[in-house]
Design a protein around this nucleic acid. Structure first.
Lengths: 167, 167
DNA sequence: GCTTGACCTTCCAATGATGGGAAGGTTCAG
DNA sequence: CTGAACCTTCCCATCATTGGAAGGTCAAGC
């Protein structure tokens, strides 16, 4: 992966440098532009996107907000709150609190699953014999078992990670 | 939502009844067939899929495994283990344990986010004044802040829930 | 000037599990 | 025979993210 380190004196920079400085991939910067999360970048004569320090700040904000688990839609609102210097902190606190509640709910769901699974695993002798309470429970005839109760939401397993903040 | 309750004496049934009995939606049954998680259903003369009791058991197994947070790929393996009556329970236990580790890791990540967010919220006075440590942190100039560390994976926010087990 | 390679551009595709809906065929009861 | 409730296949959307192709641009070194 050859990676030329870009150093520029002034403010203006291409998308690659913006990506390096902000920790948001160029791909994602373009994506954020298409979904309207950031405003359309001005273009150089040849069509290259042009970024300033100010854009880098915004992109970093977005990266951190993503790392905090906010969706792009939520970030749109956060950006609006951020840019409005008159907004009362109350609004921000409330918004963040709602997100925190969702997070906690998700955690509780996962923990319910983990607990149930732990118990099954604990009850499995795990030797060469074929009888196994784990499979028996999943196959179970009875209703109202552990896994008829918990784990109602299951986001797809993702291959791609969110951008790993290296800056 | 008109819903006719279907009661059939014998084993053979259409996809709708299979869905009701298994708790897996007809849509998902077809999907599981296309991705090869279940074998292709036999068809009636007119092309309707035909299901037996045995298929219902498999579908219930899949539903519970999904509720336990296994991906369809993992379930494929679980089904193979289940169907192999000679497999040592050790294998199942190991497989489930690996999944449990992943679950715990995910929980830990979410908890790191939740903790960091909690702290920010706690530090926000939340009144009418505009200064707010939450936004300040997201906008922060400094590197190595809370959200430069935690939360590396963020599955997309889903609209659709996994099938809610009602049976 | 020309080449080369590292940039940049747009566009399309895939991921994973799930639902929505259209267009059209089947079945069964009244 | 009609209508409703099934069934079929096919395409689309979600969300954030990456991959890759096809092609334009720029700057350094020859």
């Amino acid at each position: 992966m050859p990676l030329r380190i870009i150093i520029t004196a002034g403010d203006a920079m291409n998308i690659g440098e913006a990506a390096q400085l902000s920790g948001v991939s160029a791909k994602m910067i373009r994506y954020y532009e298409t979904i309207g999360l950031i405003s359309k970048a001005t273009r150089s004569y040849s069509g290259y996107r042009d970024y300033q320090e100010r854009d880098i700040h915004i992109l970093r904000f977005i990266r951190r907000a993503r790392a905090a688990g906010f969706s792009t839609l939520q970030i749109k609102k956060l950006l609006a709150l951020w840019q409005d210097r008159q907004r009362p902190a109350r609004e921000v606190k409330q918004f963040a609190s709602e997100h925190l509640s969702e997070l906690k709910e998700k955690i509780a769901e996962l923990e319910a699953i983990a607990t149930a699974l732990s118990q099954l695993i604990a009850h499995c002798h795990g030797d060469d014999r074929p009888d196994c309470p784990i499979l028996d429970t999943l196959a179970g005839e009875s209703t109202g078992g552990k896994f008829d109760e918990c784990g109602k939401r299951h986001p797809p397993i993702r291959r791609h990670s969110a951008p790993k903040p290296k800056i």
